[in-house]
């Protein structure tokens, strides 16, 4: 029992909200890119087969369905972390973590073979997992700014107005997509059992 408890990685709520996030963001990003295509901000368009909804009205339906999944999931996740202190004890970035950033970057860039000593998560992971919820908050607020630029005109103004809020919303989306590929890469190189632990909660001891 003691050995297993030591390797219990992710509580159930964390695992469920993680995969709900995957689904919700998958819907939000792909339908959002279809909405982008209706009036592209920049020169490029998104290939249609990477988008969801078929046409603008369909994409909007998906987008404003996905937003509820994303927001409700976020509320559950934040409530759990505030109540349980789970995040505070694992992924929350603290000022003392600053010192670990440069050594970790050196290690990842193969400039140093020495993996800096860390707790469950290293400084870069903590930084990322602390910034991602803020990114989500930015996405939601910039989304409100362009969904309700009249009812919440102050939020729209705080993003620099309607048109600029639309750019922010896209930039936040791009940041999520970048995070997704980086996350996928790091999970892939860290091994199968690490991936499995986000489903079952448990990670094999020898690989810990």
């Amino acid at each position: 029992m003691a050995r297993r408890e030591k390797n219990y990685q992710h509580p159930l709520i964390v695992r469920v909200t993680h995969w709900m996030n995957f689904i919700a963001l998958g819907i939000m990003v792909t339908s959002g890119l279809r909405i982008y295509n209706a009036s592209p901000i920049w020169e490029f368009r998104i290939p249609e087969n990477l988008t969801l909804g078929g046409w603008l009205a369909g994409a909007r339906m998906w987008h404003f369905f996905g937003m509820w999944l994303f927001v409700l999931n976020g509320i559950i996740w934040v409530t759990y972390n505030v109540a349980s202190k789970h995040g505070r004890n694992t992924t929350l970035f603290r000022s003392s973590d600053r010192l670990g950033i440069v050594p970790m970057i050196k290690y990842y860039l193969r400039l140093s073979k020495h993996h800096p000593p860390t707790t469950k998560y290293n400084s870069l992971q903590k930084l990322t997992y602390t910034l991602i919820p803020l990114l989500a908050l930015g996405s939601v607020l910039s989304g409100i700014a362009i969904y309700w630029p009249v009812q919440f005109s102050l939020i729209a103004a705080s993003f620099g107005g309607y048109d600029t809020a639309r750019i922010w919303h896209f930039v936040f989306t791009a940041a999520f997509v970048l995070f997704f590929f980086g996350h996928l890469f790091l999970v892939a190189i860290s091994g199968w059992s690490n991936f499995v632990s986000m489903i079952t909660g448990w990670k094999r001891a020898e690989e810990n």
Partner: peptide
């Protein structure tokens, strides 16, 4: 015009999406 590209991935999702749209 749009019959070739209805709300993907299919008509099964449309009642749910319509319901959420009315809720919105």
């Amino acid at each position: 015009l749009l019959s070739g590209c209805d709300i993907t991935p299919g008509e099964k999702t449309e009642p749910l999406l319509r319901t959420v749209q009315q809720f919105n």
